[in-house]
Design a protein around this nucleic acid. Structure first.
Lengths: 216, 216
DNA sequence: TAGATTGTTAATCGATTAACAATC
DNA sequence: TAGATTGTTAATCGATTAACAATC
């Protein structure tokens, strides 16, 4: 089974691979990928081993099969539908973000508890009242929710989502959710990310020392 | 020196501590904090040890000093100014986000290369043309930039920022920046976060197994 | 062939966890 | 006192890195 640290590097690998593909290359060495991303070549090779794709000594890896293998490992080669809950600043920004398509993620509905927002268009979707969420989830069999409600409401809304059938939550609210073991929660917490930035700044000032890339 | 994994847990500790403070508690045990966050009590105590605050056997930790110590360790008790570069969907959402104040972060200016956006108000700031960025950085001695430009421009814009004096970049562009060793880069990459969510979903489906909270 | 690269095995490193004495 | 908790030392676990043989 592929480790989480490796999984975290996959999107970066994909970006490098696509970049080199676009430049016209068909093959790329682990050495080159490592150099692009500030990693070691051994680490890149070990990560690649997880995908099942084999390289050729002296040449490297064929780019297209590698892209396909990584995409497949992330399950990004099949489309997954998700709903977005909370049409605030961040929620709307995410709803409008077009890059999700390349992760196989499609936002199929947006919900908000504020009735004055409902009916408004965001891209080709309409904001719907949160009361409709139960029937929507059941009708469309959605299993993933993007949670962008305020922190104060996050726990309660998350519990509702789970009760209605949601099995995985991508949580952007600055709140640590306490949910059943069998519900997947992935945080995307600005505070955590900024805390690391702050700590690195402090270290730089205190000891003039910088550490290599920390993948989130 | 406090480890990065510990730093990543600090914002969650702060949220729990503030929550219990608001409920009227003056003291809290590591056991309780661990339970709230799905961590082990030993880990919480070890993390707390890093702050320098000592607990009392049978009672726990005094909340206020703990909050103060964590805030101080993150350097969140002194205000830091930053500029935001790229007034797209995400950039505007971040510019409007009011929670940064509690991290000691203040966005003092917004820049975009699109002239039609310049002059528009975002909160109490005006979007400024990116040509002004050099003089702004020099005049205001800003050292941190929040980068929310499209991936295709990220590397080039980042290099400019560094040339003008920026020393730390909070990078929201889906691009891995290659910059000088002495520049701090902290990524906040949606793709990485979603990759982990995808992997967890796959594991859940494949083996019915879920792992505990992964802090980004 | 020489040299660059892959892939694997073993060593290292660092964080988490377990065990347990100390405290109130 | 008994029991819950803290704090520390040692063991465990897992990822990264080093060393090196295999390959083209």
């Amino acid at each position: 089974m592929i480790s989480i640290p490796t999984i975290k590097r996959f999107p970066s690998y994909l970006r490098v691979l696509r970049h080199y593909r676009q430049l016209g290359y068909d093959w790329i060495s682990a050495t080159k990928i490592a150099e692009e991303l500030g990693l070691t070549a051994v680490q890149v090779r070990k990560d690649m081993a997880g995908t099942g794709v084999e390289g050729k000594p002296k040449i490297g890896f064929e780019i297209d099969p590698l892209i396909a293998a990584i995409m497949h490992n992330l399950n990004w080669d099949t489309q997954t539908d998700a709903i977005l809950v909370g049409a605030g600043n961040l929620g709307l920004a995410l709803a409008r973000y077009e890059g999700f398509a390349s992760y196989g993620l499609r936002i199929t509905a947006i919900f908000d508890s504020d009735e004055s927002k409902c009916g408004k268009a965001v891209g080709d979707l309409l904001i719907m009242p949160i009361n409709n969420i139960s029937s929507y989830i059941q009708a469309h069999e959605v299993r993933i929710a993007v949670l962008t409600v305020p922190a104060a409401q996050a726990q309660q809304v998350a519990e509702q989502l789970v009760a209605y059938g949601i099995r995985a939550i991508w949580n952007f609210a600055p709140k640590d959710l306490k949910l059943s073991e069998n519900v997947i929660v992935q945080r995307s917490d600005l505070a955590t990310s900024f805390a690391v930035l702050s700590a690195k700044c402090r270290r730089m000032i205190d000891h003039g020392e910088n550490s290599p890339v920390d993948l989130l």
